[in-house]
Design a protein around this nucleic acid. Structure first.
Lengths: 132, 132
DNA sequence: TATTACTTTAGACTTAGTCTAAAACTTAAT
DNA sequence: ATTAAGTTTTAGACTAAGTCTAAAGTAATA
């Protein structure tokens, strides 16, 4: 059992069961922005008996405790992202792959001046192609 | 049958059946960003026998022909937007309601300078509260 | 009018997300 | 160490939205 992950879960107020550690080991190390179903498929490799409810419950708990972020960017898919700090997203339309874009790579102005809206959070969603 | 809508459908290369006109009358006039299920519920008021497949097929055709835009912004919901020109979106976290923000209300810079990415399209997604 | 092409229907199917009650496991108390 | 309390997982059922299918209905063309 990965001691570093255990500590990290505890630090976020999460009781580290074997299944939760397995989920965290995958989700915290990936830059794939996986769906819950993909997480389930991956965790099943180590825990063939793991139940769907456990994986979904675990992911939802991780989001609730701020360990990962849940995104909805394309195709109705909910995906998970270990990068919880503000950043932007680029979606490669050829592959469907989602790429993280550092916050400062793009400059956004006048967000605070929208009439009638209190903006708590924002980010830019970009679509196009990855350059080979 | 609404002649204006019929012409608009034809103009987009869409054969105007009664069901398609009913869907268009609702989707082109609303600023609600409805889900397909909501469109189905609304169209059922006029066409109680309309089938789910017809509504979904119709919405997907409208997107394909550029009559409406399909968005994925929150909660895994796919929603439809008659405003096909570039604009931004504000999601009211209290109500779930999606608001259109004019393109020029926000300034976004340096998008063209992202290393390794050809950006075809982008917009800003904002979350917060609508001010009373 | 007949034929061809297109659209809709009704119901079945799929998938991802949730619910449920019981079993299993962990932690706390004695 | 044992018991009790609390938490987590399981297995399977359920739900809702999106898709598929084959037949029926409608529109366009010859």
């Amino acid at each position: 059992m990965n001691a570093e992950i255990v500590e990290k879960l505890r630090g976020h107020g999460i009781q580290p069961s074997a299944q939760r550690v397995a989920v965290a080991e995958y989700i915290l190390a990936t830059d794939e922005h996986p769906s819950a179903e993909r997480v389930l498929a991956r965790v099943k490799r180590r825990f063939p008996m793991v139940s769907r409810a456990t994986v979904y419950n675990t992911l939802n708990l991780f989001v609730e405790k701020g360990l990962v972020q849940q995104l909805v960017l394309t195709g109705g898919r909910v995906v998970f992202d270990p990068w919880v700090e503000d950043h932007h997203h680029f979606i490669d339309e050829a592959t469907g792959k989602i790429h993280d874009i550092p916050w400062d790579a793009i400059e956004v102005k006048r967000v605070d001046r929208l009439k009638g809206f209190d903006v708590r959070k924002f980010h830019v969603v970009l679509k196009g192609r990855r350059r080979g």
